[in-house]
């Protein structure tokens, strides 16, 4: 028994990464960053998702998508609940503490639910692109033409529905191909949120910026996957904030806490209060700067 000899060859084994997508850089060695207010930017990012009742499995079925045989009324409606009810609870919660957030929005949501997206924008929140709908997944199995068309359509339809060209992009499940970064750049986007390897923005080789949206802190990971309670999720977020505020004070460099929430998960009646309490506690902290993704990217770019 033996493996092919090439399995013990390591052509990319050298200084830096095994790819050229971005250069290596250690957070603690970078020049300090400062925010206009406070030392921890709290970036709340809401996913606005529409799951067609006709799911597609290519390239892959999005997390949270239909699960039973057709027609899956159960999951179609439970997900749409987020757009009808949960997202409105979020908007009230943000108003209460004066927080501005980012809404990663399927183009289909902007087209189908203009009342929601108008209220999001009137509230001073940011809308970024989040594919066409929850069938619009990307991975390395997608052809270049299909992926280019998907990104282009998502940006064009979202822009048409909102009247504003988005600066940011979040892929479904943060899943990309090797071409995605260049396609996002070509379609005029400034930043994406998919790469979770850092805790401040950084620049890809092609000039696009990554604003890392920590997936470990999301309501999907902690509540839907790890099956913790909403209170446990909120406590973890507070622990994270405490640590980052201490680290910012110790290092003299600002930090960022990304809070990725989903209306059909955290917007439920029995969970929303934990989210509201978290927002209230954070807003009472002098280190807290509630900021939209584009504001963080702009502040960081001006200093980087």
């Amino acid at each position: 028994m033996s493996l092919d000899p090439s399995y013990l060859e390591y052509p990319m084994r050298g200084r830096g990464y095994d790819h050229a997508l971005y250069p290596w850089s250690a957070l603690h060695e970078r020049p300090p960053v400062k925010w206009p207010k406070g030392s921890v930017a709290v970036w709340v990012c809401v996913s606005l998702e529409w799951f067609p009742i006709t799911p597609t499995d290519a390239p892959f079925r999005a997390p949270g998508h239909m699960a039973t045989a057709y027609p899956d009324f159960r999951h179609y409606t439970a997900r749409d609940y987020g757009n009808r009810v949960g997202a409105w609870r979020f908007l009230d919660a943000f108003d209460k503490v004066g927080a501005q957030a980012t809404f990663a929005t399927n183009a289909a949501v902007a087209e189908r639910y203009p009342e929601l997206v108008c209220t999001v924008m009137d509230g001073g929140h940011e809308v970024i692109a989040h594919s066409t709908d929850m069938n619009g997944t990307i991975d390395g199995s997608l052809t270049e033409d299909a992926e280019g068309a998907l990104v282009g359509e998502a940006v064009r339809r979202l822009t048409a529905a909102t009247g504003v060209k988005p600066k940011g992009w979040l892929s479904i499940a943060r899943s990309q191909s090797f071409r995605t970064l260049d396609l996002l750049k070509q379609h005029g986007l400034t930043y994406c949120c998919d790469w979770v390897n850092d805790e401040l923005p950084y620049r890809f080789t092609n000039g696009l910026i990554d604003l890392p949206l920590n997936h470990e802190l999301s309501d999907r990971t902690i509540i839907a996957v790890q099956q913790q309670s909403a209170d446990s999720w909120a406590l973890s977020l507070e622990d994270a904030f405490d640590w980052l505020a201490t680290e910012a004070a110790r290092t003299g460099s600002a930090r960022m806490l990304p809070i990725h929430v989903t209306p059909y998960i955290m917007g439920l009646p029995y969970r929303i209060e934990a989210f509201e309490r978290l927002l209230a506690r954070l807003s009472a902290r002098q280190e807290c700067w509630f900021a939209r993704g584009d504001a963080i990217v702009e502040e960081w770019s001006a200093q980087a």
Partner: peptide, 8 residues
């Protein structure tokens, strides 16, 4: 799990 690159 995903085709390369598995970004997450």
């Amino acid at each position: 799990v995903r085709p390369h690159p598995d970004v997450v």
